[in-house]
Design a protein around this nucleic acid. Sequence first.
DNA 1: AACCAGGATCAAC
DNA 2: GTTGATCATGGT
Length: 318
Amino acid sequence: MTETILLKESSGLPGAECSGNSGKIMKGFGFDGVDTYTVSFPGLLFSADKTFDCGQCFRWKKNDDDSWEAVVKGRLLRCEGADDVISIKCLEGDCDDGFSAILDDYFDIGTDYGALTSELSIKDDVMSKACEVSSGIRLLKQDLFETVISFIVSANNNIPRIKKCIENICISYGEKITDLYYAFPTPEALSSADPADLTKYCRVGYRGPYIAETAKIFAEGSISLDMLNAESLEDQRKKLLSLPGVGPKVLNCIMLFSGIDRTAFPVDVWVERMMDELYGIKLPDRNRLEKYGKEYFGENAGLAQQYLFYYIRNIHGK
DNA sequence: AACCAGGATCAAC
DNA sequence: GTTGATCATGGT
């Protein structure tokens, strides 16, 4: 695709790269007026395979033709594209120009991953290699409630089974979009779920009560993104940490993958393995590994963690 | 048949 | 504040 430079307000064309009122170049999705959104600019640095299959999200499914599909914000989307281009076709749900901004946010279009990757690469040889292998991963900004429930399910679990559990939850409690696709359930829908049913039918094991109780707290309105945004990071963490099923590691995944805090540094068995095998660092507990990672990688600790997570799993054939 | 997976919780120290 | 047992489930 050739590069297009157009005014967003008047273009309505895919791949809009437009100048905002600040004079700074603003890059974002453009709507074709029918059903497709496209963003395209040099350095977008996008890999659908890596972004959707790196462990940050669990609901994107790959088609035989290498496109990906998922329900996001109640719409069924098909994603194609690589490197400088992301193309999103809306298969079910309302299409309008306003959705462009939501896609900009979801795909974190405002962040220059090329610049961040360059910064991280010069930290050390391990990180440099991780940047090579993981190049194309973009950290999504996912729905808070979906991220909370998903990572409660992730505790002491493996990725293929996490995906199945979440799929079961969506089919059982989410709105049906097509024969194959269901939306992630609302807090209200999940709050009325019987924990025993979550265990018996959704196969979430002992996490059933955690999911139901946490959904109730969201449904009551005690926690929402709007209220969290008005609070300090520490207050946000404290509030989320109080949710049943949310401990330190799950908390950091929520902070990172919902886009609240890109300096969050989740430590799981793979990060322990990575620190040991790649950096030769063994610390007695995950809390200290987290502190070490945050201090060492600083503002970009979250992206560093995700690159390294992808890298070490890649080494081990996952 | 044990061990593992993007750990959290609770009791006991 | 730190440590250990326990918690479903499905794959290896």
